[in-house]
Write a protein that binds this DNA or RNA. Structure first.
Lengths: 226, 226
DNA sequence: AATGCGCATTGACTTAAATCAAAATCCTGC
DNA sequence: GCAGGATTTTGATTTAAGTCAATGCGCATT
C-alpha cells in the first residue's frame, strides 16, 4: 500500500487537497517494527511522531513494580506519540506493537513547518487531540468511579458498537491485555467473566463473547449494579 | 482588570500581536459565577468555551452514586471546556467554581473563525491540549498504578514545586476536595495524613503542611514504599 | 500424536480502601 | 462570645480486588 493512500485514509489528513497530501507524504518515513519491539518509551526525547500504517500499537504506562496500564490501542490511520511535538518534548508513555506493524514517522520540525502553512491540517490535529482528551475523561471516570464489572460491561458494549453486532463480540486482544486496559489483572478479569456468565449476562467461549442481556450490561456499565 | 490584560497573560493568547489580541477581546463575553454555580455539565451541548479571568474552576465527573472525581482545577488564564469546540460538541465533564469567579466566554463559531486565520493562536491551542493529555496520562497512572499514599506524596511534592518551597506547602483546597482530586474519600485521606505524620514524613496543621522528609516522600511517590 | 510453553483459570488468603456511624474540631455569622 | 453547620477525624466493619500458588487448557511445533 502506498503512503499517499494510507495518509488519505487517516483522520489527521482528512480533507487535504492532493498537493498537500503529497507534501505530507514527502516527509514521512516508513518504519517497521516487530511484535513487542519498543517504539518509544516514557520520558524519552521525541524528535517526531508516528502514524500507524499497518498493525496495532499499544500505548501504556508501567508502575515501579512492573504492572502495566494500557492508555490506548491505536490502529491504521491513527497518530501515535504526537503530544511531545506540541509540548514537553518527551514521550508521555511507552509504545509497542501488539503485532508486526508498519508506522510512518514524521520528523517534528518538518511536520511543524507543514502545520504552520496548512490550516485544515491543524484543525484536524486539534480535533484528534480533543477526542483523546474526551477518551481520557472516560478512562479516569472508569478507573475512579466504577468497579471492574462495570468497566468490563462498558467495554463489551463499546466493542459491540464498534463491531456492529448487538449479540456478539470478538475480543481482538488477549485477556491479559484486556485486564491491563481495564486497569486490573488477569485473575480478577477471569473471575468477573465467570460471574457475568453465571449471572446470564454473557456467554464466553475463548475470545468470542455473546451478549445475552444487553439491558443488564448497560445497567451494570452505568450504575455498577443489576 | 480589563479583558485585554487578562488575555495577554493567558498561555492561549501568548505571543499574539496587540491587534490580534484586540480581535480576541472583541468576541469575549465576561460572565460571573457564584461559588458552586453550575458552569456546564457533562453531556451538555457546548456553543463555546471559557477562559478563567478570576477565581478557580473545578472540572469533575460524577458517579451514579454521586461520588465525585476531580479532573482539573483551573485558575486565571486557563481555558475551560474547550474540547467540544473541536470534537464531539458536548462537554465531557462538569464545571463549577470553587469560589466566586469571573470567566470569559468565547462563542464557538467566532472563535473558530479567529483560529482559522491565526496560526500562533492555533499552535498555542495545540500546546495546551497536549499538556492536558500529558496530565491525563499521569492521572491515569496515579489512579491505576499507585495507592493513595503514593498519590498524596506526589501531590505534596507537586505543590512544593508550584509554591517554590521545599519545606512547606499550603493546601489551597479543602481536604474533602483534595480527596476527590486524588480519587479517594475524606476518611481515607485523613487516615493517610495521620500515618504519614506518624512516619515522620510530614507535619500537619490544618491546611498547612510541612515536608519533613522530602527524600522519603519522593520514594513514596514513585515506588509506593519507604 | 506427543511435547512443551504461554495463557487462562481456580482456590486460599491478604490487603487497601470504602462504608457506616459517631465524635471532635473548625469556622462563620450573629 | 457563642451557636450551629460544615468539615475533619476516629473507630469498627465490610468489601473489592490484589497476591501467591497451583492447575488446566489451547495451541503451535516438531
Amino acid at each position: 500500500m502506498d503512503p499517499v493512500s494510507i495518509l488519505s485514509a487517516a483522520p489527521l489528513f482528512d480533507g487535504l487537497p492532493p498537493d498537500q497530501l503529497e507534501k505530507v507524504a514527502c516527509i514521512a518515513l516508513p518504519k517497521d517494527f516487530k511484535k513487542d519491539a519498543l517504539i518509544f518509551s516514557d520520558g524519552q526525547d521525541a524528535d517526531g511522531f508516528y502514524v500507524v500504517a499497518q498493525g496495532r500499537i499499544k500505548v501504556f504506562k508501567l508502575s515501579s513494580e512492573g504492572k502495566e496500564q494500557i492508555l490506548h490501542i491505536f490502529g491504521p490511520g491513527e497518530p501515535v506519540g504526537e503530544v511531545p511535538v506540541f509540548s514537553g518534548g518527551v514521550f508521555p508513555a511507552n509504545a509497542v506493537p501488539l503485532e508486526k506493524s508498519r508506522l510512518l514517522f514524521f520528523p517534528k520540525k518538518a511536520f511543524v513547518r507543514l502545520l504552520e502553512e496548512n490550516t485544515p491540517l491543524v484543525l484536524n490535529m486539534l480535533a484528534i487531540l480533543s477526542r483523546r482528551l474526551r477518551q481520557f475523561t472516560v478512562q479516569v471516570e472508569n478507573l475512579s468511579l466504577k468497579e471492574v464489572p462495570g468497566r468490563l460491561a462498558g467495554y463489551l458494549l463499546f466493542l459491540a458498537q464498534e463491531q456492529n453486532n448487538r449479540q456478539h463480540v470478538e475480543l481482538s486482544i488477549s485477556k491479559g491485555q484486556l485486564a491491563s486496559l481495564l486497569g486490573t489483572i488477569p485473575e480478577t478479569l477471569s473471575r468477573i467473566l465467570s460471574k457475568m456468565k453465571d449471572a446470564g449476562l454473557i456467554g464466553v467461549n475463548g475470545s468470542s463473547i455473546s451478549l445475552l442481556d444487553t439491558e443488564g450490561l448497560e445497567m451494570l456499565a452505568e450504575t455498577g449494579r443489576l
